[in-house]
Design a binder for these strands. Structure first.
Length: 414
RNA sequence: GCGACCGUAGCUCAGCUGGUUAGAGCAUCGGUUUGUGGUACCGAGGGUCGCGGGUUCAAGUCCCGUCGGUCGCCCCA
């Protein structure tokens, strides 16, 4: 095997088709985000640890054992972001962006979670992220969902994916429902898996979507949230579903869809596929009206979602690799210099072209062909003397002479 | 943190119940073609068989450990 430093577990070196897929996902997101007038935001890759600890919830696995936290040289505890939402809310507060509310924000980039890598799961992975901060209108939830739906359509993966939708109600609803669930599961303690007994202490809602067959009877017979919804919460959810219907976005109600993170309220959703093994969630989010308050800010309503770029990239059709239109093939030193000038001219004219750093004609032609280049521009002493280049169409094999001054135009014309 | 499977050239893999100098395809480089690619043919370079220990006359092949990979559980995008 190779020696030298190795890639850190759970990180990736991405090149070739994989990189093209990644780029295609990001490009689609940037395009769609503009259509919905979301502005781009950039935030730090690391934050004070408390930003995540206070917002995400001390009891979640993310905070308790999956964060990359470290003391900096000054002794402060910093953490590599495990998600975008908390950092964006911190920025909203510390930069005084309340004055711009409601704010529609989008970003993408690396996030970090210390987990055991598996299919579609990495320690450094990448997310798309969209948030609306400062609006308590159900229309905000709807817009975010329609945006997500359009993104998946533009990526061509809507067929394998369904939008699962639920409401967690407002704070009062959630409290009442949670109490009822605890009571229900306490009564079925004997039937539950060890994992779920654990969840009962830490996050009882999670028992509802347990994969363990032993938990299913108790989970399926558990009280549903609808009975506990306050009138306001019920109205809110009705407005969201009506909006989705109006926008023509397909959705299915999933009463056992809950969120792992403490800050969610009202709308919760996941776009789920069966094409990625155990990692079925492709895009997920919801409303988190309590988060900014938990960071020490004023009560501020907000909604958002995040999607794993790697997971999306695995699902899309392979994109056409970008290939240059032409390759320069100089023969000899004089031609090499002339070709350098020609290449610069073509590129300034907006024509993508390539020129190998060295090699004989055979090598250069083979390289151009392997790269999928359409035209080889051959420059030798004969051509130079005539002020022309030999242009070879590598697809048809036909070859013709073009005056150097007309090169760019000739290539565009063909 | 737990479980299962896997770890042989740059890549994908073969190597039968342990037995002389470990193979193939692709890729790379060179040649058939000293100014013409994509096809074909010939040739070359490249591996302490993840690492460490053990069993054996003998280990890529068996055993233990360790590291890494893959998939699943937990959790989550």
């Amino acid at each position: 095997m190779s020696k030298g430093p190795q890639r850190i577990r759970g990180t990736q070196d991405i090149w070739g088709e994989e990189a093209d897929r990644f780029q295609a996902v990001v490009a689609a997101f940037e395009r769609v985000r503009r259509l919905y007038a979301f502005s781009r935001i950039e935030i730090p890759v690391f934050e004070a640890t408390e930003v995540f600890a206070r917002s995400i919830g001390e009891t979640t696995d993310i905070v308790s054992k999956e964060m990359y936290s470290f003391p900096d040289r000054g002794g402060d505890s910093l953490t590599l972001r495990p998600e975008f939402t908390a950092g964006i809310c911190r920025a909203y507060l510390s930069e005084g962006w309340q004055q711009h509310a409601p704010l529609k924000l989008a970003t993408h980039g690396p996030v970090f979670r210390y987990e055991r890598p598996q299919k579609g799961r990495f320690r450094q992975f990448h997310q798309l992220d969209a948030e609306i901060i400062g609006s308590d209108a159900p229309a905000a939830d709807v817009e975010l969902l329609v945006l997500a739906d359009q993104l998946l359509h533009e990526l061509g993966i809507q067929d394998g994916v369904t939008l699962n939708l639920n409401t967690l109600g407002d704070a009062a609803t959630r409290e009442a429902w949670r109490a009822a669930l605890v009571e229900h599961f306490e009564a079925h303690r004997a039937d539950l898996s060890e994992d779920s007994l654990n969840r009962l202490e830490k996050n009882p809602l999670r028992i509802l979507d347990s994969k363990d067959p032993r938990d299913r009877p108790a989970a399926d017979s558990a009280p549903v949230i609808d009975a506990f919804l306050t009138a306001e919460a019920a109205d809110f959810f009705a407005a969201v579903t009506a909006g989705l219907d109006a926008a023509g976005v397909a959705w299915t109600r999933n009463g056992s869809l809950v969120r792992g993170l403490d800050y969610y309220r009202h709308t919760a959703f996941e776009f789920i596929t069966d094409r990625l093994g155990a990692q079925g969630t492709v895009l997920a989010g919801g409303r988190y009206d309590g988060l900014i308050e938990s960071l020490g800010g004023p009560p501020t309503p907000a909604v958002g979602w995040a999607a794993g770029i790697e997971r999306l990239a695995m699902m899309i059709a392979a994109p056409e690799p970008a290939r240059p239109q032409a390759a320069l093939v100089p023969l000899g030193e004089a031609a090499e210099a002339a070709a350098t000038g020609l290449a610069a001219g073509l590129r300034r004219a907006g024509i993508a072209c390539d020129m190998a750093f060295k090699g004989n004609m055979k090598r250069r032609l083979a390289k151009a062909d392997a790269a999928g280049v359409r035209f080889a521009i051959i420059l030798g002493d004969d051509e130079l003397a005539a002020g022309e280049a030999a242009v070879k169409d590598l697809r048809s094999g036909e070859q013709f002479r073009v005056a150097l001054a007309d090169l760019a135009g000739a290539l565009v014309a063909r």
